[in-house]
Amino acid sequence: MTEKLLEVKNLKQYFNIGKPKEVRAVDDISFDIYKGETLGLVGESGCGKSTTGRTLIRLYNATGGEVLYDGVNVHGKKSGKELKEFNQKMQMIFQDPYASLNPRMKISDIIAEGIDIHGLAKSPKERLEKVYKLLETVGLNKEHANRYPHEFSGGQRQRIGIARALAVEPEFIIADEPISALDVSIQAQVVNLLKKLQKERELTYLFIAHDLSMVKYISDRIGVMYFGKLVELAPADDLYRNPVHPYTQSLLSAIPLPDPEYERSRKRKAYRPDIHQYEDGEDVRMREISPGHFVNCSEKEFEQYKANYNHKK
C-alpha cells in the first residue's frame, strides 16, 4: 500500500450532547485508508459503523477529532467552491435501494443529478450520453433511462445507486451495507460489479457491512467495531486466521457457513466486556501486534496477546 487517501484521527461523534441520553456513537477512533484499497468495517447494529461512514462524508458534523482527505480537513470551514470539489471526490452508496432513490424522478435524472450540480456535461446531449454510458457500466441498458424506480428489482436499483455514485467520477466511495437488502445470488452480482469498477477506475472503498464472509471476500483490510470503538484492525486474511480481540473471536465464531458438518461441531464464543477488567486510568489504546495488525488493549493484555499470537504461527 502506498499513499494515504484518508486519515481519521480521534474521531468522535456524540448525539444528545449534555443531555441525560447522551450517546457516544463513535468514540475516539483512528484509522487510515490507503489509495486503491478496500477497507471493510464490521460490527453489530448500533456499534457505530454507519455513523462513522456518515461522519466521514460530512452527513454529520464531527463532535471531535478530524478527518483528513488528501491532507485537507473534511470538517474544516470551506467556501462553496471547495465544498463542491470535495463532494465530487467522495460519494456514497446506501443500504436500502428502495428508500434511497426518489420515486418521482426518472432514472436518467437520478443519475444525472450530480452531473448537473457539478456542471460535468456541456449540453443535454452530452448529459444523456453520460447517463447511457453509466447505465452500461453497471450492467443496465439505455432503455432504462426513462423509467421510474418502482419498475426495477432490488438488485437493479442497487446498480442505479452505484451508477449515481459513479456519475461525478469520485475517487472514494463509502458503501454502507450495499448488499444486505439483496438475495444471495444478487449479492454476488453486485459485489463482482463493485470489484470490477474498482479495478477499472482505481477507486478506494470503505465497505460497511455485517455479513462477515462477504466482507472478507471484498476487503483488503478490515476494522472491527464494538460500542463506538475500533477494537481490531488487520489485513483481511490475518484477521480471520488470527483474531486477537475476544470480541472479534466471538464475532467470527458466529458466522454461519454453508457446510453442515462444520455447523454440527461449531462452538460459539460469547463475548463479555467485563473480562478485560481495566483499572481506572489504564492506558487502553490500539497497539500493533504484528505489522499492520492493531488491537485495542491495555499494556498487560498486549503482552498476553503477543505471546499467544506467536504460538499460532
Binding site: 444471495v184 445470488s185 449479492q187 454476488a188 452480482q189 459485489v191 463482482n192 470489484k195 464472509s213 462477504m214 472478507k216 471476500y217 480471520y240 458466522i255 457457513l257 454453508p258 457446510d259 453442515p260
Partner: peptide
C-alpha cells in the same frame, strides 16, 4: 443437498456464496 447437489440451480446457489478461504477469483453468479 450441501455435499451432493444435483440441480443446476442448487449448484448456482452454493457456488455464489464466498467461503471464508475463497481467494481472489470472481464470485459465481447465476
Amino acid at each position: 443437498i450441501f455435499y451432493n447437489p444435483q440441480h443446476p440451480y442448487t449448484w448456482g446457489l452454493i457456488s455464489s456464496m464466498p467461503s471464508l478461504d475463497s481467494q481472489d477469483e470472481e464470485l459465481f453468479v447465476i
